[in-house]
Write a protein that binds this DNA or RNA. Structure first.
Lengths: 253, 253
DNA sequence: GAGTGGTCTAGACCACCGC
DNA sequence: CGGTGGTCTAGACCACTCT
């Protein structure tokens, strides 16, 4: 055997590519800059386009790149921190609520939500659609499930649907006395309708935050929010509003 | 043109495939069951293997499937809920700590961690490696960064490294009075070493939980934990230990 | 050794964007 | 209309696991 084994543990090409590109991004590119197109990049590295794309996909997953069909691949800005589970998000419709109501309907929720709400399967509940913006960009789409028993005094509302009715439902929900909430975070892929609102393609990776809102000893509402995984870092501030900004003289009073 | 357009809005094949497979998983398969191999499945649906794999990848991302090289594709069990940011995880080395110390070293942390710890760039800190198990399976790997100033009385410890030293460092860390902590969650891909510990391939999707532990008005330690995104659902219990178990007679005293 | 999923190639065409 | 990323094909070989 005159040939020599170049790598005893050969790492995949796309993995090596990803490393090389990642270092190039750090040193030779700045945020917003446009990369060469995929065909050129593939040729430059001597690999098939599919292999290059595998590397780009991972870098996009990690929030390093942003790719848009018909436009090109750009260097992504650092992920934005989005507060979840604090006052900002504490109770739907509250004064510091970061969500914008979009629509409202009355329909049967998914089985898993019905279980959490302790409603009968197929029993219709209020479904409020909301979106959340940060820095002018949509970062999350939400479905808020509110059983009719949580907002009993809704008879006087004339708006049958739309944002006006959504606001009315949230206002009624405010009358309950909050007893807390809990969250769960998991990875998912964007449904077609969420993808549209988030300005992404269907199937894009998203962080799904499920929140149960508690009042009067039971679950008063359930929220299923899908956040763009490429651009968002979800923050859970359990220790007050601690800022990371460099401000060495800052001190609690 | 005698041909007829089958779909005026043609959704991608892999997307349709994913839907069909997802429904089949619900109705015709049970947890742990082995699916036909990729070549057979692709032939059965009349698509290339790469296209089928695109659908399988998404289903794996959503936690519906589990694929293992050399073995096959199986139906995944529901994601396990993993408590983060509660007493279970509150302070490293505490009585209800879910983590197992593995190793300990003294080295310079990444720049971002150094900033959070307010240490000089390049200044070595204790780096404790830990793993977290649930139901006998590894679900997370962690690097805990502890500045030397947080554990000043470590001179009497003889173990220079290894799990014994890790436990000693954690014990010293316990002497500080905790003032809280905050978390951030984002999507990432597994580094080679983490992937090995998590029994996954490098690049597998992971949920990265960054935790700052506060004591004496400063950041006493920083934890960077990578959770398997396919099998884990991270839970943040902000409302006490509310159980989901059906127990209608349960009531707070 | 047989069978599985993982990687890689060299093409092709499509959907979308901006000019 | 030209250029971009997104989808898809039909192969090939490799790394791994199990028997």
């Amino acid at each position: 055997m005159g040939t020599q084994q170049l790598e005893s543990v050969p790492e995949p090409k796309y993995w090596h590519l990803k490393t090389v590109l990642s270092e190039a991004l750090d040193s030779e590119f700045s945020v917003g800059e446009i990369l060469p197109n995929e065909r050129d990049l593939a040729a430059r590295f001597g690999v098939a386009r599919a292999t290059l794309r595998q590397a780009l996909e991972q870098l996009e997953l990690e929030g390093r790149l942003q790719r848009r069909r018909g436009v090109g691949t750009t260097v992504a800005p650092p992920r934005v921190g989005v507060a979840v589970g604090t006052e900002q998000h504490a109770w739907p419709g509250g004064p510091e609520d970061a969500w914008q109501p979009v629509d409202c309907a009355l329909d049967a929720p998914p089985a898993s939500v019905a279980t959490a709400l302790e409603t009968a399967p197929g029993e219709p509940v209020h479904i409020v659609r909301r979106t959340r913006m940060t820095h002018g960009q949509p970062v999350a789409a939400e479905l808020l499930y509110i059983p009719q028993s949580s907002v009993p005094d809704l008879s006087g509302i004339d708006a049958p649907s739309g944002a006006a009715r959504a606001r009315a439902v949230l206002r009624e929900l405010q009358r309950l006395s909050p007893e807390g909430h809990d969250n769960a975070v998991e990875l998912g892929s964007a449904r077609a309708d969420d993808a549209k609102e988030l300005d992404r393609l269907p199937g894009a990776p998203v962080l799904i935050v499920t929140t149960r809102f508690l009042a009067q000893g039971r679950t008063a509402a359930v929220s299923v929010a899908t956040y763009r995984a490429d651009t968002c870092r979800l923050t859970f501030g359990d220790s007050g509003n601690v800022e990371i900004h460099q401000d060495p003289q800052r001190r609690a009073s």
